[in-house]
Deep mutational scan, measured.
Amino acid sequence: TVKFKYKGEEKQVDISKIKKVWRVGKMISFTYDEGGGKTGRGAVSEKDAPKELLQ
Rank of each mutant, 00 (worst) to 15 (best):
F4M: 02
D14R: 08
T31V: 09
Q12W: 11
R23I: 09
T31G: 01
D14Y: 09
I28Q: 00
K20A: 11
Y32H: 02
K51E: 12
E46C: 10
K26I: 11
F30W: 01
K26S: 13
K17G: 03
E46Y: 14
K38R: 13
D33C: 06
V21H: 04
K47A: 12
K19T: 14
L54D: 02
G8A: 04
Y6W: 14
K47E: 14
G42S: 03
D33M: 06
R41K: 09
W22R: 05
V13E: 01
P50F: 03
F4T: 02
K51A: 13
E46N: 06
R41L: 12
E52M: 10
T39F: 13
K5M: 14
V13A: 04
I28S: 00
Y32V: 02
K19I: 14
K19W: 11
E34D: 12
S45H: 15
V13D: 00
S45D: 14
G37H: 04
G36S: 10
E34Y: 08
G36R: 07
E10L: 14
V2R: 01
L54K: 08
F30L: 01
K19N: 09
M27L: 13
E52G: 08
V44D: 00
R23E: 02
K47W: 10
S29D: 03
G36V: 07
Y6R: 07
V13G: 01
Q55F: 12
E46P: 07
K38N: 09
K17F: 10
G35A: 06
K5H: 10
E9M: 12
S29Y: 15
T1D: 05
K19P: 00
V24N: 12
T39K: 06
D14K: 08
G25W: 04
T31Q: 06
G42W: 04
L53E: 00
P50D: 03
K17L: 13
Q55R: 13
K3Y: 13
K7Y: 08
K7F: 09
K3E: 05
K20P: 01
K19A: 05
D33T: 06
V13F: 03
G36E: 13
T31R: 03
S45A: 14
Q55S: 11
K7H: 12
K51I: 15
Y6H: 09
G37M: 05
P50Q: 03
E34R: 10
G35R: 04
G35Q: 05
E9F: 09
Y32T: 01
D48K: 10
V13R: 01
S16P: 05
S29N: 15
T39L: 14
G25T: 02
Y6D: 07
P50I: 05
T31N: 04
V21M: 06
G42K: 01
W22T: 05
E46V: 15
K5G: 04
K51H: 11
K20L: 11
K47V: 13
E46L: 14
V21K: 03
E34Q: 12
K26M: 11
I18N: 00
D14H: 14
K17Y: 09
K3F: 13
K20Y: 13
K38I: 12
E10M: 12
F4C: 03
G42M: 03
K3Q: 08
E46S: 10
A49V: 05
W22A: 03
G40I: 05
D14N: 10
K51V: 14
L53M: 08
Y32C: 01
Q12T: 15
E34G: 07
K47F: 11
L54H: 05
P50A: 04
T31M: 11
A49R: 01
F30S: 00
Q55T: 12
T1H: 10
L54Y: 06
D14F: 11
L53C: 03
F30N: 00
D33Q: 05
S29E: 15
G40H: 06
G37C: 05
K19M: 14
R23W: 12
A43K: 13
D14M: 13
Y32S: 00
G40Y: 07
K47L: 12
V2W: 03
F30Y: 01
R23V: 08
E9K: 13
L53R: 01
I18W: 01
S16G: 10
M27I: 13
V24C: 15
Y32E: 00
K17S: 10
Y6L: 06
Y6E: 06
S45N: 15
K19E: 07
G40F: 07
G25S: 03
I15S: 03
K26R: 12
T1V: 15
G35P: 09
K3H: 10
K3P: 02
F4Y: 05
G36A: 11
V21F: 08
I28F: 05
K38C: 07
D48C: 10
A49Y: 04
P50R: 03
K51N: 10
F4A: 02
F30A: 00
D48A: 10
V44P: 00
G35C: 04
V13Y: 02
G36H: 12
K11F: 09
D48I: 09
D48R: 10
T1Q: 12
E9V: 14
L54S: 06
E10H: 11
V44Y: 02
G42I: 03
T1N: 08
R23D: 01
E34H: 05
V44I: 15
K20S: 11
W22M: 05
L53W: 08
G35M: 06
F4S: 03
K7L: 10
S45C: 14
K11E: 02
T1W: 13
A49C: 12
S45Y: 14
G36N: 15
K11V: 09
L54G: 03
A49F: 13
Y6I: 10
G42T: 02
M27G: 03
G42A: 07
M27P: 00
S45Q: 12
K11N: 04
K38V: 12
V24G: 04
E46I: 14
V13I: 14
V13Q: 01
F4N: 00
V44K: 01
L54R: 09
G25Y: 04
V13S: 02
L54I: 14
K7V: 03
D33A: 06
F30T: 00
K7N: 12
K11P: 01
S16A: 13
S16C: 09
E46D: 08
A43R: 14
K17C: 11
G36Y: 08
G37D: 05
S29F: 15
K20H: 13
Y6M: 06
P50T: 05
A43I: 15
A43P: 00
Y6A: 06
V13K: 01
K5L: 13
Q12D: 07
E9P: 02
W22F: 06
P50N: 04
L54Q: 07
T39Q: 08
D48W: 11
T39Y: 11
G8Y: 03
R41I: 13
V24T: 13
K20E: 11
D48Q: 10
V44L: 10
K3L: 09
S45W: 14
F4Q: 01
K7C: 13
F30I: 02
F4G: 01
S16L: 10
G8T: 04
G25K: 05
I28E: 00
R41M: 13
I18L: 07
G40A: 11
D33G: 03
E10G: 05
G36Q: 11
Y6C: 09
D48E: 12
G42D: 01
V24E: 11
D14P: 14
E10D: 13
R23G: 03
F4W: 12
Q55K: 14
G25N: 07
A43L: 14
V2N: 01
K19G: 05
E9W: 07
K51T: 12
G37A: 04
L54M: 07
V24D: 11
G37I: 03
Q55P: 06
E46H: 09
G36M: 11
A49I: 05
A43Q: 15
I18D: 00
G42E: 01
K11H: 09
Q55N: 13
R23L: 06
Y32A: 00
K17A: 12
T31H: 04
E34T: 10
Q12I: 15
V24M: 10
V13M: 04
Y6F: 11
V24H: 15
K19V: 12
M27N: 07
G8C: 05
